[in-house]
Simulated scan of single mutants.
Amino acid sequence: MMDMLLRPRIILDAAEAEDAEALAEIHATGFRRGWSADEIDALIADKTVSSHVLRRESLFGVRRPQGFILIRTVADQAEVLTIVVAPAARGRGYGRRLMEAALRALYRDLVPEIFLEVDEKNASAVSLYRSLGFVEVGRRKGYYAEDHGPGGTALVLRLKLR
């Protein structure tokens, strides 16, 4: 019983403007070129973009973001703009929880399909997406910048929701 009282509560909700700085810090840990707080704030304010933030609530009620996903929906297609989990929170299934929350919302909104790009070298992300039913529909060579060489290949994945 005491263990349940000490375990932090996980909350999934929409991003707000005041989250932009914390989300930018998390984003910078997952990508070569992280997005600034201003860029994230603009996306949060964009009517075509939906967001889900995974927060852990401390004993003191502080709800710190641990990861987030941003999805743009236009007409009958959605695209994952980004998904990232803070390094200290990785390996706990938070990425899956974020994806599942986003997919449920898209399904509820009758969006028939969603696309994303993922670095083919990101084995854990590729495994997650495939386990959710995403299939490869293309490749973009040189999509991800690297220090030396032509850049990494992005897999273009699609999931039909309807």
Rank of each mutant, 00 (worst) to 15 (best):
A14N: 12
P112C: 10
H148I: 13
Y129H: 01
T48Y: 14
I44G: 01
I11N: 05
V84A: 06
I10G: 00
A154D: 06
M1S: 13
A145H: 13
R33G: 09
E120Q: 11
R139I: 08
A88T: 14
S127L: 11
R130E: 09
A123F: 07
A86K: 03
Y107M: 11
T73D: 02
G30Y: 05
A88N: 13
R55L: 01
A22S: 10
A88Q: 15
P8I: 09
S127W: 08
E113H: 09
E79S: 12
R63N: 11
G91N: 06
L128P: 01
K121M: 14
T73F: 05
A75D: 13
A22Q: 09
L54K: 04
K141H: 14
K47V: 15
A145L: 12
E113P: 00
G67T: 03
K121A: 15
I69S: 00
A45M: 08
L6Q: 12
E136N: 08
L70S: 06
E16M: 11
E100N: 08
V135Q: 12
R97Q: 14
I44M: 05
R96C: 07
E79N: 11
A45C: 11
A89D: 07
L103F: 02
E57L: 09
N122G: 09
E79C: 11
D76C: 03
H52T: 12
E79D: 14
T82C: 09
I40Y: 03
V126R: 10
A20S: 11
I71T: 12
P87C: 08
A78C: 09
R90K: 07
A14K: 13
A105S: 12
G93N: 03
G133D: 09
A78M: 09
R72V: 14
A42S: 13
D38H: 11
A102R: 04
L128V: 00
D147W: 14
V62R: 15
A45D: 10
D119Y: 01
Y107A: 14
S36L: 08
F60T: 14
L54I: 15
D147I: 12
R55P: 13
W35Y: 11
P65F: 03
A37Y: 01
A102F: 02
V156I: 13
R9F: 10
A42M: 11
K160W: 12
T73G: 02
H148R: 15
F68K: 03
D147R: 15
A154W: 07
I71N: 01
L132N: 05
E39Y: 06
G133Q: 05
L70T: 05
A24P: 04
V49A: 03
R97Y: 05
K141V: 12
Y144I: 00
R97E: 01
H148M: 15
E21H: 10
V84F: 04
E146F: 05
V126K: 10
D41G: 15
I71E: 00
I83A: 04
S36H: 04
L106G: 01
T29G: 08
A20H: 06
G133L: 06
Y144H: 06
G93S: 06
M2Q: 13
A86T: 06
S127Q: 11
V135P: 02
I11A: 04
D3L: 14
